[in-house]
Design a protein around this nucleic acid. Structure first.
Lengths: 244, 244
DNA sequence: TGCGCCGATGTGGTCAGACCACACTAGATT
DNA sequence: AATCTAGTGTGGTCTGACCACATCGGCGCA
C-alpha cells in the first residue's frame, strides 16, 4: 500500500517505534545509512524525515556530537498546532470555533483538576510560580501572553490527560498570532492585565480548594471575556499572522 | 528565521494562502516552477510539499489532467489523526486519554446539537441514513465500525464546530487500529452490535427531541461501555496497529 | 607538561541533472 | 469516423557532488 518510497521509510520507522527498537530521546540512524538499509535514495529518506519532523517526532541538527542528527522527541502539540494554523490560514477553520473549543477543553480540565484535588493534593507550585511571574510590572504584552499561555497549560496539565493537554496548547499556539495582533489594538492594556491577574488567581484558588464547578465556570468566563474584549474569534475575520 | 530552504517555500506558500492567491480546490504550480520562482532546488520544494501533504493541505498525483499535480484540499482531521497515531505508537499518549477526550468532546457536541435543535430544526437525514445502514444484518465488524465512525462524526458535526469535528474524527481515526484489533477478540459480537444499534437510536432520538442533557449522558455512557467491553484504553497496553 | 590550534570526520542541508511512470492531448493512421 | 501513437508535462526517484557546522584528536608551540 505504501507505494511511494518515503512512505516505505515511514512505515519501517513506525514499526521500529512500535517494537521498541526506537526510543524517545534516542537518535535515528544517519540519512545515508537509512537510505542504504531501506534501499531508497537519500532524498526519499529526507522526505520521510520532514514528515516526522512535522509530526513532532524528531528534531534535526547538523554537525556532530550528542545534539546533532535526528533526535527522537515527543511533542504531540506541535503538529496539532501547526495543522490548526495552516487551516486557519486557508480560511477553513474559523477562529471562533477554536475559542469555543478552548472553553470546552479548559473548563473540563479545571473541573477535573479540582476534583482530583479533593481526592489527593495536586502539585500547584508550577502554577503558583507562573502566577507570581505575571505580577511583574514591566512585562511587555507578548511576554505577559507567553506567561499566560504557560499558566493555562500548567492548569490544564493538572487534569492528567495528555491528549487534552496537547490539544489545549496546540489551540493556544494556533491562535497566538491573532491574539498578539488583537492585543496591540487594545486601548486599555494595563486594565486588561489587572483583570486577567485577578481572574487567574481566582481560577487557581478554586482548583486548589477543590471547587470543581466554580473552577470550570471561572475559566470559561475568563476565556470568553478575553476574546470578547480583543475581538478575536468574533464573526468572520480574515486577518492572518506570522509563523513562529 | 526560516533558514532552511524548504521553510522558505512553506512561508511563501503560507503568504499566498493568507492573501488569497491560493484557494482550496486550486492547484499549486509545478515543482520545477516553484523551485525556479523561490530560487531553491526542486528537492527543497518537494520537502515542503511533503509537509503540506502531511498537514492535510494538498493531495498530489502524477500524470496530467485536472486530477494531477498538487491540489489544495482542506482536511484538518488528517494531520491531527496522524499525529495522534504517531505519538500513540511512540507510547507517549495513552489510549485511555484519547477515549476520555472522546467522551468529553462528544458529550459536549451532542448537548450543543440538542440545544440548537430547540432553536431551529437540524438536518438529521444523514445521521438517520447511517443509522439505517447499520441495521443491515450482514455487515462485517470492520464495515460496521466504519459506519459507526461516520455516524458519530455526523452527530458531532451537528454542533457546528469545525474544530471539534476535526478533533473528533481525528481521535476516532487515531485509535481505529486498536478498536479493530479489540473487536476481533470479542466473544459476543452480535450482541454488541444489537446494543450499539439501540444506543445509537437513543442518542439520535435525544438530539432530535432537543433533550441536551440526556443526549450528552447517553453518548458518554455509550463510549464508556464500548471501550470497557473491548478493553481498549484500559490500563497500559502496548499493542500496536497498522497504518491506513 | 600543558595549552591551544587545526585538520579529519561525520552530520544534516543543498544543489544539479538525469530518468521513470503516468495520464492526458492531439495528430497521424487505418 | 474510429483507432492508434507520439508528444508533453506532471510527480516520483535516483546519483553524486559540495557546503556549513560541530566535535574530537593529535600536533606543535610555549
Amino acid at each position: 500500500m505504501a507505494t511511494r518510497s518515503y512512505q516505505i521509510v515511514l512505515s519501517r520507522i513506525e514499526a521500529d517505534l512500535a517494537a521498541g527498537r526506537l526510543e524517545i530521546g534516542g537518535r535515528l540512524p544517519g540519512e545515508r545509512v537509512l537510505a542504504q538499509r531501506y534501499q531508497v535514495s537519500r532524498q526519499s529518506v529526507r522526505e520521510a524525515i520532514r514528515v516526522l519532523e512535522a509530526m513532532g517526532l524528531i528534531r534535526t541538527a547538523a554537525g556532530s556530537g550528542p545534539e546533532a542528527g535526528a533526535i527522537l522527541i515527543a511533542d504531540p502539540a506541535a503538529p496539532i498546532g501547526a495543522a490548526l494554523r495552516w487551516h486557519l490560514t486557508s480560511r477553513h477553520l474559523p477562529v471562533a470555533d477554536i475559542v469555543r473549543t478552548r472553553m470546552l477543553i479548559e473548563s473540563w480540565a479545571l473541573r477535573e483538576a479540582a476534583g482530583r484535588q479533593r481526592t489527593g493534593p495536586l502539585d500547584l507550585t508550577a502554577s503558583r510560580a507562573l502566577l507570581g511571574a505575571m505580577d511583574a510590572p514591566s512585562l511587555s504584552p507578548s511576554e505577559f501572553l507567553a506567561l499566560d499561555t504557560r499558566f493555562h497549560v500548567a492548569l490544564v496539565a493538572l487534569a492528567g490527560n495528555a491528549v487534552v493537554s496537547a490539544i489545549m496548547s496546540a489551540m493556544r499556539a494556533g491562535i497566538e498570532g491573532y491574539v498578539v495582533a488583537a492585543v496591540a489594538g487594545l486601548t486599555d492594556w494595563p486594565g486588561m492585565v489587572t483583570l486577567l491577574r485577578s481572574e487567574h488567581a481566582g481560577m487557581l484558588e478554586a482548583v486548589g480548594d477543590g471547587r470543581a464547578d466554580r473552577a470550570a465556570a471561572l475559566v470559561a468566563a475568563h476565556i470568553d471575556r478575553f476574546y470578547r474584549a480583543t475581538g478575536v474569534g468574533q464573526m468572520d475575520q480574515q486577518d492572518h499572522h506570522e509563523r513562529g
